[in-house]
Amino acid sequence: MKWLLAGLAFAAVVGLAVATAAVRAHNIAERAALQRLAERLEGARIEAAGERARLARACELRELIQRWRECRQRIEGRGS
């Protein structure tokens, strides 16, 4: 009985020490993961802004107006 209690007490001490280290390691790992996530988010925001600008450049307004006018003429021609 007494050795069992001694073993349990020893295990409790070791367990606490391990748990403390684990909490700390987990904290560091989670913090690093959060950091990576935040960096990825910032990268995604920058990429999205660039993509928006690229798409805006891709549809040139003058061309859109020209196409809209052609479509309108076609529709009006069909109506008459």
Binding site: E39, R40, G43, I46, G50
Partner: peptide, 9 residues
Amino acid sequence: DVQHGAVLE
């Protein structure tokens, strides 16, 4: 002027 998240990674 890096604008791709993958490049930053």
